[in-house]
Simulated scan of single mutants.
Amino acid sequence: MTDAAPNFDHVDFDEMFAALCSEVGFCLHDKGQKKVIAALPKGLDAAMKAVLAADGVDEPNAPGDLKKAVRDCLKAHVQPD
């Protein structure tokens, strides 16, 4: 899986969280952001689940298009060099 271990050296986390807020509607507090950052090394699916959990969304029951939108937004900001 190529996106399981992305390079975080050039990730602008402020930009990533701003995009999550403006594009997908997940405006996370600092504690939630830290959980997402901690989950990123485990892969984009783990980070997506962390975003949903931080916002109080029941991930197993969340619509697939919402999960995809969150994952795609994260992926756009965590690309290998």
Rank of each mutant, 00 (worst) to 15 (best):
80 P>E: 13
64 G>N: 01
50 A>G: 07
49 K>M: 13
13 F>S: 02
78 V>N: 01
72 D>Q: 14
32 G>T: 06
42 K>P: 07
21 C>Q: 13
80 P>D: 14
29 H>T: 07
51 V>M: 11
41 P>I: 14
72 D>K: 14
33 Q>M: 11
39 A>K: 03
14 D>H: 14
24 V>C: 09
18 A>R: 15
19 A>N: 02
50 A>F: 06
3 D>Q: 09
42 K>G: 12
58 D>R: 13
53 A>T: 00
17 F>D: 02
43 G>Q: 07
41 P>V: 13
76 A>E: 14
2 T>I: 11
76 A>S: 15
27 C>Y: 06
68 K>M: 14
15 E>K: 15
46 A>T: 02
8 F>S: 07
72 D>E: 13
22 S>I: 07
34 K>F: 00
40 L>D: 02
54 A>E: 04
19 A>F: 02
38 A>N: 12
16 M>W: 00
60 P>T: 00
66 L>F: 00
50 A>Y: 00
17 F>N: 05
58 D>W: 12
15 E>G: 15
62 A>Q: 06
20 L>E: 03
27 C>G: 04
33 Q>P: 03
60 P>Q: 03
78 V>G: 01
21 C>P: 01
7 N>P: 02
48 M>L: 10
47 A>H: 09
67 K>W: 06
9 D>L: 14
3 D>W: 03
56 G>S: 10
69 A>K: 12
8 F>T: 09
67 K>F: 05
8 F>L: 15
51 V>P: 04
56 G>P: 06
53 A>S: 00
9 D>Q: 10
28 L>E: 03
68 K>C: 11
35 K>Y: 04
32 G>K: 06
16 M>N: 00
13 F>A: 05
77 H>E: 07
57 V>Q: 08
36 V>S: 05
24 V>N: 03
55 D>H: 07
19 A>D: 11
55 D>F: 10
45 D>G: 11
54 A>T: 02
19 A>R: 09
50 A>P: 03
24 V>T: 08
30 D>G: 03
38 A>V: 09
53 A>G: 00
56 G>F: 05
41 P>H: 11
8 F>G: 04
18 A>T: 14
51 V>W: 01
39 A>I: 07
43 G>C: 12
49 K>I: 12
16 M>E: 00
33 Q>N: 03
81 D>I: 09
40 L>C: 09
12 D>H: 11
